[in-house]
Amino acid sequence: MSDISRPTLSALHQAFRNSFAALESNQRLWGSELAECSPLLGSLGNLAEQMRALSNVRVSSTPLGTFPKLEERLRFKLQEAADTVLEKLNEKMCRLQSARDAISNQVRSVMQLYEQNATSLDLQAVTERSAVTPSVADMLEWLQDAERHYRQQFLQRKVLLQTLRPNDLALLESLPERWKSLESPDGEQRITGNINCPKLETRAPPTLRCGTLVSCRNTLQSVIFPGAGVKTEEQNWNQNLLSRTEVNDADTERKTRDLKTLHQIVFIVY
């Protein structure tokens, strides 16, 4: 590692620490807000069911027929109730948006920091990882993955809610299921790192250079990397990774899959 890269690296590491901490707290916020949405979706679905029943019944030929304009009045009340629920849902969406924005801003600031210093960082400094510190490239990638996940999740849900129309009963009825189908436990797991990876011992390099985190090495290294690392494949990735700063989807997909083990460690270390 060149002497110029050292201060830059430590600044980057500090930024990563902040970002992952922010990511974690916003991820919790996101999760709790999203959990509060599902009862609201349930009641919207139930209201749709009631509207459907009302449409199926000819009120004038039932004992309720004696009440003037009962059908219209009930329909109005049902729509009013649906409006109230949608309003609450909108509040939730605003909070989800603020969580997403917080994540995006964090990631953007780290990316900016990296781009400003990209010239002073040589290839080795960026791609070098150790038992206790993932490489800068890895961490940038994880942050971008997380940012993209929340951005997509938010947009999909927002679009779903925006397609609702008061007279489109079928859509309102299917809303709870559609909402549920947007859940992506896989994507969420990649971010929280709550997974058991069977490939743990077959990979990762044994070298450790990052001075600030050396103290963790002895304890972590023996636990996490008992075997010798497979280096060739990894070097290929690093080459790939550095050829562009913008990461494309299919590539990341593959890489995150392989790198998710280290993800957990970031939370431990930071």
Binding site: E49, A53, N56, T62, L74
Partner: peptide, 10 residues
């Protein structure tokens, strides 16, 4: 069941 539902929502 639709009529029951209408009664309930009323």
């Amino acid at each position: 069941s639709d009529l029951s539902m209408v009664y309930l929502s009323c």
